[in-house]
């Protein structure tokens, strides 16, 4: 029997295409589901045969809903899900802790606090004002949490919890001080709201996702070695500190931009990489693309559930992901034998 490496370009391509197909299917189904009933057939037909996508003044109301409301929303859900999953996979490896996730580590909270501060100070008008502050919040959190917990991964998770509590207080402070009438929408945003994205923001999130993915994928094999321990990575020729720095930066950037426009959506970065590892192994050359695609599909599906679960209103998608994610976290905790 000819020996083959566990991960080859062909295998990555095969699995990536499979997951991309799943992603595409979820995308189309999500487009068709919602409070206003648009049939799957009609949805697909409109998507492919109604000319250029976008608002059709002459088109039917269904088509208008499809292209001006659902299309950007579902696309955005996919991008945010991919971003959070990618960041989760990167953080888990760097910390050698399968329980790490942008939400649990407090990175999402830090980004949200940064974003809220920027909005409260009226910096939202500046170009990149909100995402920049979200990024600063993310980097601050990463630095803080990792310097507290660098010796012990359990302490690290506790540090994440504490930093999260602190940033929640910061967020609540600014919410309480805010005289703005749209307190409801702010609260909604904090629990994850995918309905706010403008085309410009969608573009920004795709851009950072692409850049973050590029940086992470370039270090994929180095991260395989880092996953087995830092001294080992060093012995096998990896410039450990530089690699860690770049991966932290990429993970924080991707998280921050996603959080700045979608709010706090927890546990996606925890569940998805874990499932992908169970299915396809821990090699990052496969883990990164597979997590991004599967995470995208997962959040599109979760957001669709959030839109249609309660008929009279929409739920924040963060509620759905937390309802699924928290039990999964406990399952992982118990599987690892607890603290």
């Amino acid at each position: 029997m000819r020996e083959r490496p566990p991960v080859t370009g062909a295998r990555i391509l095969r699995i990536t295409l499979l997951l991309a197909a799943i992603c595409g299917a979820v995308f189309v189904v999500s487009l068709c589901l919602g409070p206003a009933r648009i049939s799957v057939f009609r949805g697909v037909r409109d998507l492919f045969f109604s000319g250029e996508p976008g608002l059709h003044p002459s088109g039917s109301p269904e088509t208008a809903i499809l292209f001006s409301i659902r299309f950007p929303r579902v696309l955005f859900a996919g991008l945010v899900g991919a971003s959070l999953s990618l960041a989760g996979a990167a953080f888990q490896t760097l910390l050698r802790n399968p329980l790490a996730d942008p939400y649990i580590l407090g990175v999402s909270g830090g980004s949200a606090a940064g974003a809220i501060i920027a909005i409260s100070l009226g910096l939202a008008a500046l170009p990149f004002g909100v995402p920049l502050f979200a990024f600063l919040g993310a980097v601050l959190t990463v630095t803080l949490v990792f310097s507290i917990g660098k010796t012990d991964s359990n302490i690290l998770l506790l540090a994440g919890v504490i930093v999260n509590a602190f940033f929640s207080a910061v967020i609540l402070f600014f919410l309480a001080m805010s005289r703005s009438a749209d307190l409801h929408s702010m609260t909604f945003w904090l629990m994850g709201d995918l309905g706010l994205a403008s085309p410009r923001e969608i573009l920004l999130v795709s851009g950072t996702l692409a850049a973050g993915f590029g940086i992470l994928y370039f270090h994929a094999r180095a991260l395989n070695l880092l996953a087995t321990g830092e001294p080992t990575a060093l012995h096998l020729g990896i410039a450990v500190e530089r690699t860690k720095g770049l991966v932290f930066l990429a993970g924080s950037l991707v998280t921050a931009v996603a959080v700045a426009f979608s709010g706090i959506i927890g546990f996606v970065g925890l569940i998805i990489p874990h499932m992908i590892r169970m299915l396809f192994g821990a090699d990052h050359r496969l883990l990164f693309p597979a997590s991004a695609l599967f995470g995208g599909a997962y959040l599109m599906a979760a957001d669709t559930v959030a839109r249609i679960l309660v008929s009279s209103t929409e739920l924040p998608v963060g509620v759905v992901t937390a309802l699924c994610g928290a039990p999964y976290f406990i399952y992982l905790l118990r599987r690892k034998g607890g603290f």
Binding site: R221, I238, G281
Partner: peptide
Amino acid sequence: LVFSFSVREIVLMGRSPHLGNLAFE
């Protein structure tokens, strides 16, 4: 190890210093 790698994957990691960043074994 925290994450599970097969024996072959672990041994192939030894080739790392001889491989480029994006190269496959």
